[in-house]
Each structure stands twice: as C-alpha cells, then as structure tokens.
Design a protein around this nucleic acid. Structure first.
Lengths: 347, 347
DNA sequence: TCAAAGAATGCAAGCGCTTACATTGCATCA
DNA sequence: TGATGCAATGTAAGCGCTTGCATTCTTTGA
C-alpha cells in the first residue's frame, strides 16, 4: 500500500495534499470546507490558503460516495424544443441554486418509455430528488421511486383525487373556463386540436374541460371534431388545414397548446382565412410566442414561474425530511388577446 | 469492520449483494455490466438475473470514484430562454446519448463571471469534457481547463486565428454576406441592433461584418447607428423604436440575432411602419420564430444541428485520447424571406 | 499425452472523501 | 489546585465500485 500518495505523481491535488500543506488532518480540511464553524478561524484560514495555492477542488464522486448525497436534483420535462417548460424550469433552477443544488434536466419527448429511462438514468446518477410533469406514468415507476426513497413532486397539474404531492393548476377547469368564453361568443361549431391524450393527462384534462363546457350548454361533445397530433407548429398547421376541409367548418378551433395554435394561425394566414373574422383560434400556456404572432393569441395563462419556484421548495423540504404540506393549487386564467372573437353572423 | 455488509440492513443492493446472489465475485459482476464480452454467457445470464431480482443499480459516486470517469459531458450556453441554442444542443445531446454519455447543461446569461462559475461547477461535478460557446473568456479559465486536463471544444464560431479546437462558422463573413445583399438593394442608411459586443465575440464579429461590407462600398462605417442591448424581444423592440426616432431614419435595420429582429418587427407593426416597404429588417440564426412571424424574417441560416453533432464527435475523440483533427468551418448563408426589400424610391 | 496458450474468474488494493469516535488542550469553577 | 466540560482536532473505518494481477480451467497442437 502506498503511504505517500500525492508527492509522487502529478495528478490533481486531493484532500490529503491540502491537509499536508496546511499541517492538519484530512478531517479538519473536510470540516473547513463543509462546516466552517466547527473549525477555528486560524486553522480555517490556513486550510483555505492551502486550497487556493494547490488549486484544490473536491472530487465529486468521492464526496457523493462518502456523504450519500449529491446535492443534485433532476427534472424530466416532456420537451425542450419549445418554450413551454422553459420559464418554469428557469424558476425551478434559480430557486435550487440558492440552496447550492445543481439541476439535471432530461427530456422525454412526450414518451412514457423514454421518460422511464430518463428517470432511472437520473436516479442512477445520484439525483437526490425529482421534478416530474403530470401524473400519467406506470405504477412501476412510482414504486421504483418509493423503493429507492427518492422524493419527487408532480408539477403542471393539480388533481385533488391523487395523494401524490403536486403543484400546478387544474387543467380541466382552466380549459373549461376558456371554452365557456368561446361559447358565450356564440360559437356552436367547435373543433379541438390536441396532443395525443393517451399518455398525457394535461392534454386529456383540457379536452375534458371543453366537453364539460359544452355539456353545460346542452351541446353534444361527442359530435365535436377532435384532431390528435404531437405538439409542433407544423402539426398544428396541418391539423388546422384538415379541420377546415370538413364540410361543416368550425367557427372556433381550440388548440391544446400555444404551439399548435401558432401553427393553426400560420395555416389560416396561408389559406386566406381571417382570424378571428372567419374563425377563432385559441391556445394554452401563454408562452412568449403567443404575444408575438399577429393577431396575438388568446390563450390560457399558466403560472410557470410560481410552479417552478414552488416545486423547488417542496422538493427541498421533502429531501430534508420536513413536512412539505399539501399539494398546491395555482390559478390559470384566460389571457384575452386577438384571436378570439364573436361568431360571424350567417349570411 | 463489518464483513457481511448487506444482509443486515435494508439499504439499496450493492455489487456485493448481486455477486453473492449470482455466486460470483464482485469483479465478475462489474465486468458483466461493463464489458459483457469478457464474461461467459452463462455467468452473464446469472448475473443479470440477480441484478433484475434485486433491482440493483450501480452507485454513480462509487463508479466515478473508481473509474475516474463519469461519462458526463457539460455544456455552458449563454441562454436557455430562447431557442437560439436549443436545436444545436439537442443534436449535441442526441449524439452523446449514442455513446452512453449524459449531458449536463448550464447557462451563463451572457455573463463571463457566471460562465466561469458554471464551468467550475461542471468540472467539480466530474464533467469529462465541455462544450463552450465562443472564444471570449479569460485566460485563467483556459488554463484552469488545461490544468485539470478537461477537453473542451468551442462552438458557434470559426476563427482560424486561434489554435483552439472549434466548430462553427465565420460570423463576420456570414454577416458581411447579408450586409452586401442589403447594400445591393440600394440601402445606404443602415442601423445595427446588436448584443453588447464587449464579452461576446459572435456579436462583435457580426458587427465587424457589416462594417466590412460598408467599407467595400466606400461607406463610412463609423457613421452608422449602432445600438447595443441584451438579446430579448422587448429590447429589440425598444432599440428599434429608438433607431426610428432618429432624424435620418435608416432604411434597413440589421439585427444581431432573430430575437432582436422579431422585437423590431413587432415594434414596427405597432408603430405603423411597413416592413419591408418603409424599412427592411434582418435577423441572424434562423430560429423557428423567424419563419413564423409575418412578414417572415430574412436572416442568416446557421448550421445548428451540424455544429451540435460535430462538437459531440470532436469531444468524444478528445476524451478518448484520439486525434480530433482540425477545427471545422461550416457554412452559414443568407436565408431569404420577406423582411428585406429594395430601398423605396424617395418622394 | 502433456506443455503452452488462452479464456474465465477471483482477490484485494485502492479511488478521495465524510464522519463517528477518540484524544488533546484549555478555560472554568469550587 | 484539581476535577469538569467543551471546543478543536486527529484517527481511521468505511462508502460501492473498478481493475491489475494471480489463479484456475479449457483448449489446442505436436
């Protein structure tokens, strides 16, 4: 066994080198770095100079191994390609960095399988806690997380029917609110363009929201035209074109999110269809894009930053073994802009 | 010293547990996992079942510590708030994941100080290699990376005057190309809206590109109006308004990137200024937004995906001690759309 | 049939840190 | 003055893995 590890080779300095240089034990160096109060000023100064002179930086792996904690949280979001989650994630990140926690982000491309892999990958990489989007996933994943004792919180949704800790808004209620406005304006022929609902509870809830509002007015939601397509501008455009080819053209097209809506808007323009004159279009999320397009998009404003910040707080409490309290419901309200108008009188 | 570590407690399974269950040594388990070929089929199967039955997952810290490698690369990009780097990063990420490498992303908010911190943080977390944007940073950082022997590549720029390995395009040349088109259309009164050039070589080069083109035509670049403002739609809008308040209104406003240009476009609309009738506007980057706004933005198309993919390849070669070859220059060409037109005849 | 060469596996020494526990040194108090 | 307590520091046992080297088992060729 090598006794003098450092002086012989030229690799990076270790705690031991710092200890030798400062004339203290490795324990003292470790404490100077992690719990400065437990060390005398004098010693700490000496250690710190040694650290500086040697250009020492702790080895992450060794630290994680010994401390059984990485100070890393993970987040798996459905997509990074557009800005849907960007603002929320930014807020999440900021809040974490106050606590010295690093964030690892992965994206699942809206696929449950990919998401499962990503979750396992982040856990394998030592994530102390996870941020998840939406409730929809297999029981195996939840039991995996429970088994590994990884705290997690579910965001972008609020659903009082599940005991899982979550922070978000009621997608159904929010969409129903928007749909009521649409109906109030006299629209009776409505189409919905949404993401595939089977693995996406947010999309599903939003669709239900529309149907709920229709039922309230005695309309039959089953007769409504619904197109399912992955979130993207191009898909939104195609779906809109498809919907407008129908015999009975809708007077309002409600889109599952802003990205689809912007695509619809673009297609409307190239088809020479006036918005909101000929047809109203709405989105959901209120991302930056919604405000930039012309006419500006009427949509549902989602409390991105509040969710991100709140999720961070919940997760930190959970990790520290504190009581995080109940799930948190935030509000998501209609953001009026230009693409929603009254239905044009026949004739 | 505890000899039987696992059976007594209820914590997560370790390599040793798997070894015991499969009736082999920990070395064999490790090899079954990492170098399957070095183990007989029979043994491997036995090990794998044990892994499955126990729900074993390797401990990241221990692995990193023992193997001196984390299989993690880092990227520090200036911003995540808009899509400028999204596509490139996505490609980078995809390429890495083929190799089983995890990507950690951090953003610097275009600040050199923040960037330095992020670089140190990623290195501390054991990043095996780094992707950096642009050449501008202090010599200390470069020597830090060299000292720690962390491979890195610089992307989004190509500059033959530095020996640092990079992959990207010549920002000056690309912008000069666009500027020449603008001048060809008869524009003689030109303004530039750019990010602050002092810590951003891409912005600086682009500005120089415009000046270069002007000089070629015998114009005095110093008389050109230049507004510096951080990249954001709102700032682009304000800068445009400012420029249009000038006594001698420009007939063309060249923006340092698409985000600024979209802001300018938005302001033009609300000011009732026709684009490109009254004034032409151009961007840079060709992000999705450029195509969506109306009129669609004339801009410089940047090879995002090629840069991302190429950077990954270079970095992997570097990490594996192979020769990555020379820096790679890619092309960035003008993307003609609607916001650039001929200068309107006086009167 | 037997030596030599591989292939498969095991042994055990670290990797660089944290932390429970032990030790030391001093100020404090009766 | 000597017992007491506490602050400061040291000692050393792991944390869970990888990997160089040693050992054992199979083949192979003459």
């Amino acid at each position: 066994m090598r006794t003098d590890r450092s002086s012989a080779n030229n690799s990076l300095p270790t705690l031991e080198d710092v200890a030798a240089r400062a004339g203290v034990s490795t324990a003292t160096v470790s404490r100077s770095l992690n719990e400065p109060d437990r060390v005398s000023n004098d010693t700490r100064d000496r250690v710190m100079s040694a650290v500086r002179e040697l250009g020492y930086a702790p080895n992450f792996g060794a630290r994680a191994l010994a401390a059984k904690r990485t100070n890393t949280f993970g987040a798996i979001i459905p997509t990074m390609e557009n800005a849907i989650f960007a603002r929320g994630l930014q807020a999440f990140q900021e809040q974490l960095s106050y606590e010295g926690i690093t964030l690892l982000v992965a994206s699942s491309s809206y696929s449950a399988d990919v998401e499962e892999k990503q979750i396992r990958a982040l856990v394998a990489r030592g994530a102390d806690a996870l941020l998840l989007i939406g409730h929809d996933r297999t029981p195996q994943i939840y039991s995996f997380l429970e088994h590994r004792k990884i705290p997690y919180v579910v965001a972008w949704v609020y659903d009082s029917s599940t005991p899982r800790l979550s922070i978000g808004f009621d997608n159904r209620k929010a969409m129903a609110g928007l749909a009521r406005r649409v109906l109030d304006l006299g629209h009776r022929s409505i189409a919905v363009i949404t993401a595939n609902c089977s693995e996406n509870d947010r999309a599903r809830e939003r669709l239900w929201g529309v149907k709920e509002a229709m039922r309230e007015r005695g309309m039959d939601p089953d007769r409504m035209r619904v197109v399912e397509t992955p979130y993207s501008i191009a898909n939104g455009a195609n779906a809109f074109a498809e919907v407008m080819r129908e015999e009975e053209r809708p007077t309002a097209v409600l889109c599952g999110n802003d990205v689809l809506a912007v695509g619809a808007l673009k297609m409307a323009r190239s088809l020479g269809i006036e918005v909101p004159g000929d047809v109203s279009i709405t989105g959901f999320d209120d991302i930056e894009l919604a405000e930039i397009v012309s006419p500006a998009l009427t949509t549902v404003h989602v409390p991105h930053r509040e969710m991100g910040r709140g999720a961070a707080r919940l997760l930190i409490a959970l990790r520290d073994g504190e009581d995080p309290g109940e799930s948190i419901e935030l509000e998501a309200n209609v953001q009026w802009r230009e693409t929603l108008g009254a239905v044009r009188k026949k004739g």
